[in-house]
Design a binder for these strands. Sequence first.
DNA 1: ACTATATCCTGTATGC
DNA 2: TGCATACAGGATATAG
Length: 293
Amino acid sequence: MPELPEVEVVRRGLAAGLRSRTIAAVEVLHPRPVRRHPTGPEGFALTLAGRTFTEPRRRGKFLWLPFADGDALLAHLGMSGQFRFNDASDPLAPNTRVLVDFLDGGPQLRFVDQRMFGGLSISVGGAELPAEVAHIGLDPFDPGFDVERAVSQILARRSGIKRVLLNQEVVSGIGNIYADEALWEARLHYDTPAQSLSRRRARALLVAASQVMEGALAVGGTSFDALYVNVNGASGYFDRSLHAYGREGQACRRCGRPIVREAFMNRSSYRCPGCQRAPRASSAQRSTRVTAL
DNA sequence: ACTATATCCTGTATGC
DNA sequence: TGCATACAGGATATAG
């Protein structure tokens, strides 16, 4: 699942392969990835021809590929989106959805996406910051990221801490894998009310999230299968460094107890039952008690 | 304004 | 072998 480190790996690959290149033609092979474009796949393809890419940018898991004319191609990888560079004569990978050819005749840019939760759209005037991304919070890799401000936002939420970590409007870039890893590092249960944390613990959690993701970026990201690869089709190696995610039944590397998997928010949460104890009472239980009194 | 949930989508793994 | 079901989980629309 591409989260912040994986999306940054992709951004860097795109930077190396797209800069100053001009689009000759675009072919949309499946309409779903361009569903947000108002004039449909044909309009999407036509409006892109002739545009010249500049430096790709990113906020959290959103990528945008600015054009020299001030607009941008906005991209989200969703669950399984990939950008790949291939010669036009190379066979198409399964689930290839969009093809971009360039005037220089060099490698094609291909958007491949099995589950199609992600997609491409055109952001008019979005070269600097697409309006579609304006509501997304800064990510921990952003030079403008303010830890104290993020701590304050976490403490203002009534939800469990993992819900808050996954909320891209508070801090962006964190998905299920790095949320579980950060919670393991910080020894926190996913249901701990965000409001109950001290500033110190909330800060430590954010630092842990940031450090885990930096470590993942350094080795090319986390890959479990062929659904996340860089623009050359290569996998990352961070799965070997995970402490919680995907380790059901395996010993906690801190205390030795088997990691458990629990259903949470329509997905799985992994935690150590020894190091990450459930909070004494959920906020819902407490408010019920207050009401009863 | 905040919070929680249903929904989208397809390949792979598993159970009967 | 075939068929059904569970699972992977991003962001968003919608309901409360």
